[in-house]
């Protein structure tokens, strides 16, 4: 048993090592000044300084890409959470064929590869004559984010006692009070995890943004990196930026999971 455990552990760490090698590579080379990845010219925090005081080439381009990424993700995931939560409540109360149709439609954006979602929405905006920009990107992100919110809220509806909402109404609450004081608190954990998932999916998206951003020069971090890499030279300040993003994600995810496992422990 012991030998098996050692082999198992070794395997896990080996896979992790390979999985993290490129990320570690970015983080390590964010602490040197060299222009291209893989050139080591001594330890320096120059790139971090450049990033923060804006003394880099095309600083405004990168900064507006970061701002756009965050704004689009925030707008799209907020809208997706609202739309998805209302939709989940509706779908939960549907039966038979109607429910089947909604579940099927809700699955399509999740099964569709990004490029199909991107191309199809591009054609939609062309067809309707809508000029592409922030609005179309946000609408496109809402499209592929909402199904995940629905899926995260659904289990909370199943766990909820359906009579509580009715009881609140019977006891004189207005529908909006019942919604705010009964329904939303019960669904909140699902809404939050749906929101986080939608937010990260939007942050990470490349293909859908690429096809729906139009020609007004709107860049998110992904499209900025793509254009940058195609031009040949990757902006060196992307390394510290990515390292910082990586650190934030690491801390947030670990915090969420440690909190969850603590809650589970106190429950059991």
């Amino acid at each position: 048993m012991k030998g098996k455990k050692i082999i198992a552990k070794a395997y896990l760490w080996l896979v992790l090592l390979v999985l993290y090698a490129p990320i570690a590579f970015i983080v390590i080379f964010s602490f040197t000044e060299a222009k291209s990845l893989g050139n080591w010219t001594g330890i320096s925090t120059q790139l971090y300084q450049n990033l923060f005081n804006g003394s880099m080439q095309n600083a405004s381009g990168l900064m507006s890409a970061v701002k756009n990424t965050l704004l689009i993700a925030l707008a799209a995931s907020t809208m997706a959470t609202l739309l998805g939560t209302v939709a989940a409540i509706g779908i939960y109360h549907l039966h038979g064929r109607k429910r089947g149709v909604m579940t099927f439609l809700n699955n399509i954006p999740m099964i569709n590869p990004d490029i199909i979602t991107g191309v199809s929405l591009f054609l939609l905006f062309v067809f309707l004559g809508i000029s592409q920009g922030y609005l179309t990107v946000i609408l496109a992100h809402i499209t592929f984010c909402t199904p995940y919110v629905v899926l995260n809220v659904m289990p909370k509806l199943r766990q909820m006692n359906p009579n509580i909402y009715e009881a609140a109404l019977d006891l004189g609450a207005t529908p909006s009070q019942a919604l705010r004081k009964v329904l939303v608190p019960a669904l909140r954990p699902g809404m939050i995890s749906g929101f986080i998932l939608a937010f990260t999916m939007s942050l990470d998206d490349f293909a859908v943004t690429f096809f729906t951003r139009g020609t007004i020069g709107l860049d998110t971090l992904s499209t900025y990196i793509y254009a940058d890499a195609r031009k040949g030279g990757l902006t060196p300040e992307l390394k510290p930026l990515m390292s910082i993003i990586f650190l934030i994600i690491l801390v947030v995810l670990l915090a969420i999971n440690i909190r969850q496992s603590k809650q589970q422990q106190t429950k059991s």
């Binding site: 990320i23 990845l37 942050l203 992904s222 990196i225 793509y226 890499a229 993003i245 994600i249 995810l253």
Partner: peptide, 12 residues
């Protein structure tokens, strides 16, 4: 790693 920009990871 699923949460880190796939393009950046690929470039690295």
């Amino acid at each position: 790693p699923m949460w880190i920009n796939a393009l950046m990871r690929t470039l690295a």
